[in-house]
């Protein structure tokens, strides 16, 4: 039940941000549409356990800042590869071991790998990801292991 309430609050906040008009009639309409959405989601039995990310640590913010810096660095590296007269491409498939325990942690790690230009998560298996890397510099297992450690630190222990 508290998950449904949290979902409803999040939806209503989203509605408030998008609306920008705060007259009683429009607020009532917003409330009505939120309730309708909740009813449909309830009927679909689709209220996911991850609906509130409250089980993640506040360290997520610092992780995002770190990730932004990493993204800019590797974007510049890939941009250099594209702009060089003869692109130095040495494609590799690497296997990255993962240490996350929850699905949410694994999703964060896989998306972080894909977000960093130069590496793309191709397949997820138990305990490791299959990752495609553009070149030798991108296929840095030590850097990926460091990222893995950071994600595991952010993820909540159950």
């Amino acid at each position: 039940m508290h998950k449904a309430i949290a979902l409803g609050a999040a939806l209503f906040a989203f509605w408030l941000v998008l609306s920008g008009h705060y007259t009683p009639f429009l607020l009532a309409m917003g409330m009505f549409s939120v309730l309708l959405t909740l009813l449909i989601v309830q009927r679909m039995d689709a209220i996911a356990p991850e609906v509130t990310p409250s089980h993640l640590r506040p360290g997520l913010i610092t992780y995002w800042c770190w990730l932004a810096v990493e993204i800019i660095k590797s974007s510049a590296a890939v941009a250099r590869v594209i702009l060089s007269p003869r692109p130095a491409i040495a494609q590799k498939i690497i296997f990255v071991p993962t240490s996350q325990t929850s699905d949410m942690g694994r999703v964060i790690f896989a998306n972080s790998i894909t977000l960093t230009p130069g590496t793309v998560t191709v397949e997820t298996q138990d305990g490791y990801f299959t990752v495609h890397a553009l070149n030798e510099a991108a296929a840095d297992l030590a850097a990926l292991a460091a990222m893995d450690k950071r994600v595991s630190a952010v993820e909540a222990r159950r």
């Binding site: 993204i71 800019i72 890939v78």
Partner: peptide, 14 residues
């Protein structure tokens, strides 16, 4: 294709 994915990744992030 596999190298173009990374070029699309630059657009999506940076």
């Amino acid at each position: 294709f596999w190298s173009r994915i990374h070029a699309a990744g630059i657009i999506d992030t940076a």
